[in-house]
Amino acid sequence: MQPTTTKKTPRLESLTFLRFIAAAVVVIYHFGRDTQLFKSLPVALTSGPIMVTFFFVLSGFVISVSHYNRAVCTSDFYRNRFFRIAPIYFIALIWACAYQSTGLTTTSLALSATFLQSWIPPYPLSLNSPGWSISVEAFFYAISPALLLLINKEKKRSWISWVASALLIWMLTQSILSALLAPEFYKGFKTFSHDLINYFPASHLCSFLIGFSGGVAYSQNNLENKKIQAYSAVFFLITLAMIGIAIQNQQSIERILGSRIAFGSSFFALLFLPAIYFCAVGDVFLRKILATPFLVLLGEASYSLYILQKPAYIAFTKATSSMPQQNSDIKFLAYFVTLTTISIICYLMIEKPLTNLLKRNKKISPATEENKEHQTIQQR
Score class of each variant (00 low, 15 high):
F38Y: 14
I63F: 05
H374N: 15
F336D: 02
I134G: 00
F90C: 09
A315R: 10
F139M: 14
S266R: 03
I364A: 06
K226C: 00
A262L: 08
K288G: 01
V234D: 00
C97D: 08
I342F: 11
F139V: 13
V281E: 10
L177V: 06
P130A: 09
F235D: 02
S14I: 10
L93D: 04
L357A: 14
L172E: 02
V65Y: 04
S207F: 01
F189I: 12
R255N: 14
Q325R: 13
F200L: 15
I377N: 14
G103M: 03
I307F: 06
Y89Q: 02
I120V: 15
L354T: 13
L45Q: 01
E13W: 05
L240V: 07
L286C: 02
P3S: 13
I307T: 01
N152A: 04
L205N: 07
M323G: 00
A179M: 12
P42Y: 05
F263G: 08
S252N: 12
L297Y: 02
A96M: 13
I28K: 08
S304T: 07
C73Q: 15
S64G: 08
F56T: 11
T320N: 06
D329P: 05
L150H: 14
K156C: 01
F115E: 03
G131Y: 00
Y141A: 09
L286T: 10
L240H: 03
T191C: 08
F212D: 02
I228P: 00
P130V: 06
R157A: 01
V216M: 03
F17K: 07
S59N: 13
E137F: 04
I345S: 10
M1E: 09
A113P: 04
W159V: 02
F268D: 02
L167Q: 06
L333P: 06
K7S: 13
F278Y: 15
S112E: 13
N361V: 04
I344L: 04
L257P: 12
V337L: 12
A113S: 14
I330S: 10
E351K: 09
I151M: 14
L354V: 12
S252T: 14
K227V: 11
F272M: 04
K7A: 09
S135I: 03
